Amino acid sequence: MGGLRLLLVAGWLALAGYTGMVIARHGMDLLPIFLGDIARGGWPGQFNADFLCFLTLSALWTAWRNRFSPAGLALAVVAFFGGAGFLLPYLLYLSVRERGDVAAMLTGRG
Rank of each mutant, 00 (worst) to 15 (best):
L7N: 09
M28R: 09
A59G: 02
R67C: 04
L8R: 04
L35G: 04
R97Q: 10
L92G: 08
G85N: 04
G17A: 14
L15Y: 07
W64N: 07
T62S: 00
T19F: 12
T107N: 06
Y18D: 14
A74Q: 02
L91Y: 03
F51Q: 13
R65T: 02
A39L: 10
V77D: 00
S95L: 13
R65C: 01
T62R: 00
S58Q: 11
A84P: 05
G36F: 07
G100W: 07
A49I: 08
W12E: 14
R99C: 05
P70K: 10
R97H: 11
A63F: 03
R67I: 05
M105A: 04
F51D: 13
A76K: 00
G20A: 12
V78N: 00
L88N: 05
L8W: 04
L35C: 04
S69Y: 02
Y18P: 08
G36H: 05
P44R: 01
L57S: 06
P89G: 02
L87F: 00
V22K: 14
G17M: 12
G85M: 05
F34W: 14
Y93E: 02
F51Y: 15
L92W: 11
L73S: 00
G3L: 13
R99I: 05
E98P: 01
G20E: 12
A49K: 05
G72N: 03
A84V: 07
R97W: 09
G85W: 03
F81E: 01
L35S: 05
T62F: 00
P32L: 08
E98F: 12
A74T: 01
L106S: 07
A24R: 14
M105V: 12
G108M: 07
